[in-house]
């Protein structure tokens, strides 16, 4: 009968319509912005810089190695290296970026900068409501806007952050252990040197030559 197929299709539509009241699978619309779906942990948007502690200047992890700048596909990162150094989290003297700009209007959220950074200094944010009416300035983020504390990272990517933190804690422990060992070795060496000096003194004394003070 002509029209049978159409009627069958309409029955299907009706089933879907009624089903949307009871079946979560059929009603997927979310009334954004009042209602929001939670973003998954892996979600990414634009990069930000991490710092430890409270001071975004002193705690900034970036050592200005320029790797991310070179690897970024659209070249939207601009870094200028400092001339002086500051200690990093293990106490080693490192450079820091005097200027660190990301042009997020060019950034394509590819996460390659995060992947290549060997210092865990740059991570992806989840913030996506970033519209601005300033075409050129508003989307050029400087170090001030980019720096976010580690607590923020722990909040948005809990699993990833825990893994990073554990790795860094391990590194710190190792460095401290090494430093302690080195200190111990240095102390032992000093003690030895002192002893040797003592012995020499004694020997000298025996020889009857008083060392001049």
């Amino acid at each position: 009968m002509l029209g049978e197929g159409i009627v069958k299709g309409l029955i299907e539509t009706a089933r879907n319509f009624v089903g949307s009241y009871v079946d979560k699978d059929r009603l997927v619309t979310v009334q954004y912005p009042e209602e929001r779906n939670p973003l998954p942990e892996a979600a990414r948007n634009f990069p930000f810089l991490l710092y430890d502690g409270d001071d975004p200047e002193a705690g900034l992890r970036c050592v200005s190695c320029h790797i991310c700048e070179k690897e970024c596909p659209p070249r939207c990162i601009h870094i200028e290296k400092s001339t002086d150094k500051k200690p990093d989290f293990v106490g080693k003297q490192q450079f820091y970026p005097k200027v660190f700009n990301i042009d997020v209007s060019v950034c394509m959220s590819c996460q390659i900068c995060v992947e290549v950074c060997p210092f865990d200094a740059i991570r992806m944010d989840k913030e996506f409501e970033l519209s601005t009416d300033d075409r050129f300035g508003g989307l050029l983020w400087t170090k001030k806007e980019l720096a976010k504390p580690n607590e923020y990272y722990q909040k948005i990517h809990p699993m990833e952050a825990a893994e990073t933190d554990a790795r860094r804690a391990e590194e710190l422990k190792q460095t401290q252990a090494k430093a302690a060992a080195a200190a111990a070795a240095a102390a032992a060496k000093a003690a030895e040197a002192a002893k040797a000096a003592e012995a020499a003194k004694a020997g000298n004394g025996a020889a009857g030559k008083e060392p001049s003070a």
């Binding site: 049978e4 197929g5 159409i6 069958k8 299907e12």
Partner: peptide, 14 residues
């Protein structure tokens, strides 16, 4: 299946 029921045999589509 649902999608096919919706459209298979639809005279206009054919």
């Amino acid at each position: 299946d649902e999608f096919e029921r919706l459209l298979r045999g639809n005279e206009i589509l054919m």
